[in-house]
Design a protein around this nucleic acid. Structure first.
Length: 265
DNA sequence: ATGGCTAACATGGTTAGA
């Protein structure tokens, strides 16, 4: 049977309007087949669909004013689009799902949580519990499932530049990590860790204190896949290059490459 | 040291990010 590569990316752009030139420049060299964006911060009526179409991308978006917002784009059709977590009432636009090249992709912008004593942290844990329920059902329906996005959780201490300083803090706290483990235990693989990686491989660096230059980051942007899809995964990397550019997003894109059966169409 | 940057909304200073 013939196979063809499928390169799937996730990128928290921190305002699509501001970062459209970065996305454009990056796409010219990255040969991406599909991408999930987070923090588009754009209402649907103002989504730059024409600009993205000229970059060869189509798809679906789910945004709101000022905050949050997600988009799922592909070089081929994005079908069977679902917004949000079904059955979970949420005013915040954080999830969009669709099928690209036979792969079910769920693009997530997990709540930040602000701090462990915040109402937003309680919301984050409730939200993750709802996500887990959704993903359990989706795994039953879709053998080839990818759950991608900004998880706002560093899975392990090796994903944290200074674990001691971050101990117990939001993004690394035990309840958050337990929630992520619960999701992975459904049968989802953090494919980044299926491959050898450089030391200090992170996907987010604070804008302040020259964090990027100091390599003071966290790996919070993830590509999780069902085991059947993980079998097709041949690479997963963080591309730190756009983080070096002028006026960057504070997140770098993460890319997974799969070898899928059949031709792209 | 609880700040430091950045973006949106608004047009000064607040909210939020992580």
């Amino acid at each position: 049977m013939s196979t063809s590569p499928f390169r799937l990316a996730t990128w928290n752009v921190n305002s699509l309007k501001v970062r459209l030139p970065h996305l454009s420049q990056w796409l010219q060299s990255a040969s991406i087949d599909a991408i999930g964006l987070q923090e588009t911060k754009t209402v649907d009526a103002e989504f730059p669909a024409a600009d993205l179409q000229s970059l060869g991308l189509q798809g679906a978006w789910h945004g709101q004013k000022t905050y949050n917002g997600v988009a799922l784009l592909g070089r081929t059709t994005v079908s069977d689009v679902v917004h949000g977590i079904p059955g979970f009432a949420d005013e915040q636009a954080r999830v969009i799902a669709g099928t690209v090249r036979g792969v079910r992709v769920i693009d997530c912008y997990v709540p930040n949580g602000q701090s462990v004593d915040s109402d937003k942290y309680a919301y984050k844990l409730r939200w993750l519990a709802a996500l887990q329920g959704y993903l359990a059902a989706e795994l039953e329906r879709h053998p080839k499932l990818a759950v991608i996005g900004d998880f706002n959780i560093a899975p392990d201490d090796r994903d944290v530049h200074d674990p001691k300083a971050w101990e117990g803090q939001v993004l690394v706290s035990a309840p958050e990590r337990a929630a992520l483990s619960g999701i992975c235990d459904l049968g989802l693989v953090d494919v980044f860790r299926r491959f050898d990686q450089p030391e200090k491989a992170y996907s987010w660096w604070d804008y302040r204190m020259m964090a990027f230059r100091r390599k003071a980051g966290l790996r919070i942007d993830l590509i999780l896949t069902s085991e059947a899809l993980a079998q097709d995964c041949v690479a997963c990397t963080v591309d730190v290059e756009p983080r070096r550019w002028e006026r960057p997003s504070d997140h770098a894109p993460v890319v997974a490459t799969f070898t899928l059966p059949g031709d792209p169409s």
